[in-house]
């Protein structure tokens, strides 16, 4: 944001009788400016390395022979580099049913997101455009629910799910999906995001549509939804990431099922799976394989992040609570 009266002239304070002159002070100022910049960049580079190190280590460890991981190596040194990679990943995939977990996650993520978007559009429209008694009070109540710890809801929702017969030993695929999806279709945060966006659309458009004989319903889908596409993309991406990373709820609702291994979503699977090798009749957990599984879990997210960076950052930047 540039102010209308931005100052572009450099001011130099010269004290008469002092040895310094304009040239010298300018040079000194220049030196300190450069010095400050060097410090800034050095600090940021070091901080970035620290922040990104876990990612580096995750990828590197997935390329290492197990002995290198156990000895805390920074880079793979034992064995053939490419053979290690192929061995680690094939062994991991033989014990870590990646396709199934991703499949489960995507079914839950896509269904949840689709329903969420429809419900969010309808309610955001009502809050932004339609007038009815109690609108502001209702919206305030909605927002207030964001302050309440989700654990309060999880407890009763678990009872509800078990009363609906969606959990338990004989849980089927469909029942598990339903139990994972149902409580997350309504999202106050997304309603809030979209309502703010809808409110920015000028009223004149609405009046014009009314003159053209368009109904509220047509106006919503033909004018407002297309105009709010960026926000809807943001909601979709955030929702899919949320489903991918969800652990607590999918873990709880599948925990009593007999065939829970087949119902796990990716985040539940990576925590519960045992990646181990049989050595002298003892199962020895393999950290390098665990890192392969982590890579397989995290990389799709990073790809999504790089592609949709703008949408993700603008969405979360507009004040939100994760998860």
């Amino acid at each position: 944001m540039k102010g209308p009266s931005e100052i572009n002239t450099q001011l130099n304070l010269i004290i008469p009788g002092n040895k310094s002159n304009i040239e010298k002070t300018k040079k000194a100022a220049h030196f300190w400016h450069i010095f400050g910049m060097v410090i800034s960049y050095a600090f940021l580079v070091v901080a970035a390395i620290i922040v990104l190190f876990p990612f580096y280590y995750m990828v590197m460890a997935s390329f290492m022979a197990e002995v290198d991981v156990d000895n805390g190596r920074l880079i793979p040194i034992t064995g053939n580099f490419f053979e290690n990679i192929v061995y680690n990943y094939t062994q991991t995939l033989s014990q870590f049913n990646y396709g199934r977990y991703v499949g489960n996650t995507l079914i839950v993520a896509i269904t949840t997101t689709l329903l969420q978007v429809i419900v969010t559009i309808l309610s955001a429209y009502a809050f932004a455009r339609l007038e009815f008694r109690g609108r502001d009070i209702l919206f305030t109540i909605f927002l207030a629910t964001m302050m309440i710890p989700g654990e309060m809801m999880v407890l009763t929702n678990y009872i509800t799910m078990s009363n609906l017969g969606l959990t338990g030993r004989d849980q089927t695929q469909i029942q598990a999906y339903l139990a994972m999806i149902l409580p997350f279709i309504s999202s106050v945060f997304y309603i809030f995001l979209l309502r703010q966006n809808f409110k920015q659309i000028p009223n004149e458009l609405y009046l014009a549509a009314r003159v053209d004989g368009k109904s509220d319903w047509q106006y919503l889908w033909k004018v407002m939804v297309p105009l709010a596409t960026p926000t809807l993309i943001t909601i979709t991406i955030l929702s899919i990431i949320g489903s991918w990373n969800a652990y607590v709820w999918p873990n709880i609702v599948t925990s009593t099922a007999a065939n829970r291994e087949n119902l796990w979503t990716i985040s539940v699977a990576i925590r519960n799976v045992n990646l181990a090798v049989l050595e002298h009749e003892v199962w020895v957990p393999q950290d390098s394989w665990l890192m392969c599984a982590s890579v397989l879990t995290v990389v799709p997210l990073l790809v999504l992040f790089i592609v949709f960076r703008k949408y993700i950052m603008s969405g979360t930047g507009r004040a939100g609570i994760k998860g």
């Binding site: 901080a47 970035a48 922040v51 990104l52 876990p54 990612f55 280590y57 995750m58 460890a61 991981v69 990431i241 991918w244 990373n245 652990y247 990716i266 985040s267 990576i270 925590r271 950290d287 665990l290 890192m291 599984a293 982590s294 879990t297 995290v298 997210l301 990073l302 999504l304 992040f305 993700i312 950052m313 979360t316 994760k322």
Partner: peptide, 20 residues
């Protein structure tokens, strides 16, 4: 770069920390 860890999986990176 500094925003990237936001989208990553808490469980998966937790495993990375536990190995480190």
């Amino acid at each position: 770069v500094f925003f990237m860890p936001y989208v990553t999986n808490i469980i998966a990176v937790g495993l990375v920390f536990s190995v480190m």
